[in-house]
Simulated assay, not measured.
Amino acid sequence: MSSLPPRGRGTVSNPHNRFAPTRAVAEDDGWYREETPPSLATEVRVEKAKSVLTRNQSPDVGFDRSVNPYRGCEHGCIYCFARPSHAYWDLSPGIDFETKLIAKTNLASRLEEELSKPGYVPQPLALGINTDAYQPIEREYQLTRRSLEICLRFRHPVHLITKSALILRDLDLLGELASRRLVSVAFSLTTLDDELKRIMEPRTATPAARLRAMRTLSEAGVPVSALCAPIIPMINDMELERLLEAARDAGACSAGYVLLRLPLEIAELFEEWLRAHFPERAEHVMSLIRQSRGGRNYDSRFGTRMRGEGVFAELLAQRFQLAIKRLGLQRRDFELDCSQFAPPGRQLALL
Rank of each mutant, 00 (worst) to 15 (best):
A267C: 03
A323D: 09
K50F: 04
R305N: 10
S3C: 07
Y32Q: 14
P5D: 05
A126I: 01
Y70C: 02
K104I: 11
N68H: 03
L160H: 14
S58G: 07
A255N: 08
L196S: 01
G72Q: 08
A213Q: 06
R23D: 10
P343K: 14
R55H: 14
F81Y: 15
R145C: 04
V46C: 09
R331T: 08
G128R: 04
A246H: 11
V224Q: 03
P124N: 02
A247L: 10
Q123A: 15
E314Y: 02
V12G: 08
N56I: 14
N297Y: 15
N68E: 11
A255S: 14
P124Q: 01
V46R: 15
L316Q: 09
Y134A: 06
M286W: 08
V52D: 12
G328T: 07
P344H: 14
E239M: 13
I231G: 04
G30A: 01
T191G: 04
T216N: 09
P157I: 00
S218T: 13
D29W: 07
R71V: 03
A313W: 00
A208V: 06
Y88R: 15
E112Q: 10
H159S: 12
H277L: 00
E195V: 08
M306Q: 03
A267H: 00
R83S: 05
V121C: 12
P136Q: 14
R180V: 12
A87G: 02
A267P: 01
P124G: 08
A220W: 05
R145D: 03
I235H: 00
P124C: 05
D96P: 09
A209Q: 15
D249K: 14
G8I: 04
P263S: 00
R242Y: 08
R210S: 09
L160F: 12
T54A: 06
H16K: 02
L350S: 07
L259Q: 12
T216E: 15
S218F: 04
V44N: 13
A126P: 06
R65N: 04
L107M: 12
G10D: 02
F81P: 02
P230E: 09
L315P: 00
S51W: 04
L115N: 06
T144K: 05
L101S: 10
P6D: 11
R332E: 13
T216R: 14
C80W: 00
P157V: 03
P124T: 11
T216S: 14
K100R: 12
L288E: 07
N14G: 11
H277K: 07
L115I: 06
P93V: 01
V222W: 15
L351P: 05
A247G: 04
E272L: 06
N68K: 11
S85L: 11
T36V: 13
L269K: 01
L211M: 07
R326S: 05
L336I: 10
F312R: 02
R169P: 03
L168V: 14
E219L: 12
L168Y: 06
H277D: 02
H159M: 11
K50M: 05
L160T: 10
R281C: 13
R169H: 09
W31N: 07
Q142N: 08
A246Q: 07
